[in-house]
């Protein structure tokens, strides 16, 4: 079991297939999201809609480009523990 400021917020039972996430854990996530949204911002915009529209505009910016850049990043196939990765994928089924 994990506690934050003396209150249990998650853990305790391993979450097997089909097992629901505890309400405490969901509360903890919601609380953190609320903290994130309420936290001080480096932006002067505070209205979420205005912020979203600015974000959309900035995300649409592309450098007007010419040149040789073709993104020749080399791809590498990595040795990996496939069984471990597959087990993680199985566990993630129960996490929203």
């Amino acid at each position: 079991m994990i506690f934050e400021n003396g209150k249990a917020i998650g853990g305790g039972q391993p979450q097997g297939a089909g097992q629901a996430i505890s309400p405490e854990a969901i509360d903890a996530i919601a609380r953190r999201l609320a903290e994130m949204l309420a936290g001080g911002s480096q932006m002067t915009l505070t209205d979420p809609e205005s912020m979203a529209s600015v974000a959309k505009a900035m995300a649409g910016q592309r450098a007007e480009t010419e040149g040789s850049f073709k993104g020749q990043s080399k791809e590498v196939q990595l040795e990996s523990d496939k069984a471990k990765a597959n087990k993680t994928l199985d566990l993630l089924k129960n996490i929203p």
């Binding site: 994130m36 936290g39 912020m51 900035m58």
Partner: peptide, 22 residues
């Protein structure tokens, strides 16, 4: 969000990148 710079958060950064990848 950084604990040693409480005036900064990642919200705007996340929003821009979400929109960009979308």
């Amino acid at each position: 969000n950084p604990v040693d710079r409480p005036e900064t958060n990642n919200l705007f950064h996340s929003m821009i990148l979400t929109e960009f990848f979308k």
